[in-house]
Design a protein around this nucleic acid. Sequence first.
DNA 1: TAGTGGTCTAGACCACTGG
DNA 2: CAGTGGTCTAGACCACTAA
Lengths: 215, 215
Amino acid sequence: MAKPVYQQVKTELLDLISQQESNTAIPSERALSQKFNVSRMTLRKAINELVDEGVLYRDTTRGTFVSEKGLIKKNSLRPSHYSRHLLYMTRRVFKDIAPILEIPVYEDLLRIVSKHNKDERVAYIDEIYVSKRRYMDDYQDIDHVFEAIESKDEFHIHQTFYPILVPVQFANLMEIALDRPIIMVESLYRTKKGEPIFLTKTFYNPEVETIEISN
Amino acid sequence: MAKPVYQQVKTELLDLISQQESNTAIPSERALSQKFNVSRMTLRKAINELVDEGVLYRDTTRGTFVSEKGLIKKNSLRPSHYSRHLLYMTRRVFKDIAPILEIPVYEDLLRIVSKHNKDERVAYIDEIYVSKRRYMDDYQDIDHVFEAIESKDEFHIHQTFYPILVPVQFANLMEIALDRPIIMVESLYRTKKGEPIFLTKTFYNPEVETIEISN
DNA sequence: TAGTGGTCTAGACCACTGG
DNA sequence: CAGTGGTCTAGACCACTAA
């Protein structure tokens, strides 16, 4: 009883779908709920999640169909993750970041800078800003910070996209020219209560990594 | 019986929530379902939508709470919409675009270029590419194309973000320098069946409009 | 007219939390 | 121990569409 029934139904549906052509109908909800021995509401919960993910689509009064392969949604808010390599960590006052994190301007912040490689090249670099105080209270360990940053649903994330010229200190790492335009994404992580925890700046290497979103 | 019950419940919940402080609990699902005279499942459907929209958040075993104002989700995939001003429309072959729209390379395409103003300045410019044949068959009228582009849920949209230097022909319109880095977003609109319909390129003026996403 | 998805009900049991 | 959200059931009626 560890996993909910609808989760199990969902994986069974995925098996069934994998053997089916795109744009062909799956069996009706009533037929499937009998086949899997669950109520129609439970079956629908499983299908609804697959529809949300873009695996299936519905046509009211006609049926439910398998989506074209490759139309599965991407999750947008985080870059595809390659192995993280810590570059360095500094601790000092950042007068421009502190107000965003809603802490006193002269309180110490940590800046944690990492690169992420793809096929021997740097795909993106991120800077994580977190208050020294919060780091000590809640995390103590860099790996716990990384874990939190990559966790799902725990935070409200607000992202802003800026076009910039690659900063000199990163151009060399990315092996790109100094006058190269790149995209920097600023992400503010807040708890559900609205308390800001992390600010990250992610610098994408346009020769290696593109930002893509689908719905 | 025009609107489903859960929609009505949702608006009543919004009324109730609007008078409440952030991070305070709303009544329990059982209490609310009695209050509104609906089943708990129906009440939950209303709450679930508000949670998805970021208006409420849940804490299992503790309750459901009102989110901080200003943490409501933005929908990311489309720019905030200002009034559209058609600049020009051309019809010719675009050898690079045709393969993306899966039409013969030498078939005619329409390119529809518009600007979108915010406070007397150009916030962004978009180019819409659509096959001449499809335009005649399905739309006939530019306004129908605009309507389709702005419709919700009708299409699968895949977006790619590119950092570029502002194209010369747009720098003047945007009143920005020629060496200015900007973000160009390429959006491919497909039907649920996977058939590509529109390709759009949106050029954002970084001095007026920023791209923001929240979840 | 038969079949589809969309909605709705009135119950039920569970795991977990806080007092 | 009482209360919460999470899951689940076995029915039901509706609007719409395709044959």
